[in-house]
């Protein structure tokens, strides 16, 4: 059976996803669990289709249930961000992080 943590919160509806926030809006120090990796940041002008971006994120370990913490952000417009993703450190741009939803731990 599935791991408890690996169970995505299945809310395919609108942008308000049960208290979860987009990774693209998170700040250093924010930590939590990824609850959904979507494919609907349409019109963001990505060089690739949104579902391709989704698969890349998934392959990189941005997957439902992964623990995540925002560690650093760049100097210009707080971009890109560096996150700890389980045991790994990953850098990504905020625009590519829009479809990653995280449930923040209470601080």
């Amino acid at each position: 059976m599935h791991d408890m943590l690996a169970e995505p919160i299945a809310s395919r509806a609108g942008p308000a996803r049960g208290g979860a926030v987009r990774l693209s809006a998170a700040r250093p120090g924010d930590r939590g669990v990824i609850v959904e990796v979507g494919a609907d940041a349409a019109g963001a002008g990505h060089g690739v289709a949104v579902d391709e971006l989704q698969r890349r994120l998934l392959e990189f370990g941005f997957v439902e249930g992964a623990e995540i913490e925002v560690l650093h952000e760049g100097a210009i417009r707080r971009d890109p961000i560096a996150v700890r993703l389980d045991d790994m450190r990953v850098a990504l741009r905020r625009r590519d992080a829009q479809d990653v939803w995280i449930q923040l731990d209470p601080r």
Partner: peptide, 13 residues
């Protein structure tokens, strides 16, 4: 006049 590609990069220990 292209769209921008995603940027994902591992930061090694």
């Amino acid at each position: 006049r292209g769209a921008v590609e995603p940027f994902l990069m591992e930061l090694p220990t």
